[in-house]
Design a binder for these strands. Structure first.
Length: 153
DNA sequence: GCCAACGTTGGC
DNA sequence: GCCAACGTTGGC
């Protein structure tokens, strides 16, 4: 089983939006970066654990956890000219982008903020504290996962 | 709102 | 294949 961090801008989708959805499950559409797509396509498996990370809007940080419940499949928004995720280069015959489904697991009573993460040496290898890191899906080490979960208790 | 850092595009 | 220009991300 692998561990991940997935970024979202709460103005678009926040961890609290899961609760409005059937089965507290959301498709993770709109990933338009090849490296992030490859993580989903090649490595994400059912049962993998995911940190839900809010970017841009204060407080920035990890707000809770989710589980992968459906492995990568075609993100159909790439074909929709009215979608902001539209990609004119993609066709149903040759799709480019994929998405997974994730189900909410836990919302932390207090988010683990980026500020906190930066202050903790054990978390200094995490993608979100690397300067200039813009990857919207990042692998997380088991030790980092465990550390943050403990912190969130 | 600013702007550095980054990924992508497209002309050559 | 190079690389300048451009658009986007995301912390502050």
């Amino acid at each position: 089983m692998k561990y991940w961090l997935m970024k979202t801008e709460p103005g678009t989708f926040s961890i609290f939006d899961f609760e409005k959805l059937p089965n507290q499950t959301s498709q993770w559409e709109g990933i338009r970066n090849y490296q992030a797509r490859n993580f989903m396509r090649d490595e994400m498996k059912i049962g993998d654990k995911v940190f839900i990370y809010h970017s841009v809007v204060e407080p920035v940080g990890i707000f809770g956890t989710a589980t992968v419940i459906k492995e990568a499949y075609v993100d159909y928004f790439q074909f929709d000219p009215d979608s902001k995720y539209y990609d004119p280069k993609a066709t149903p015959e040759k799709p480019i982008w994929q998405m997974v489904d994730v189900k909410l697991e836990e919302i932390f009573s207090q988010p683990i903020t980026l500020k906190q993460i930066k202050e903790i040496r054990a978390l200094s290898g995490m993608g979100v504290v690397q300067k200039g890191s813009r990857l919207s899906i990042q692998p997380v080490k088991k030790e980092e996962w465990d550390f943050i979960l403990k912190l969130a208790q």
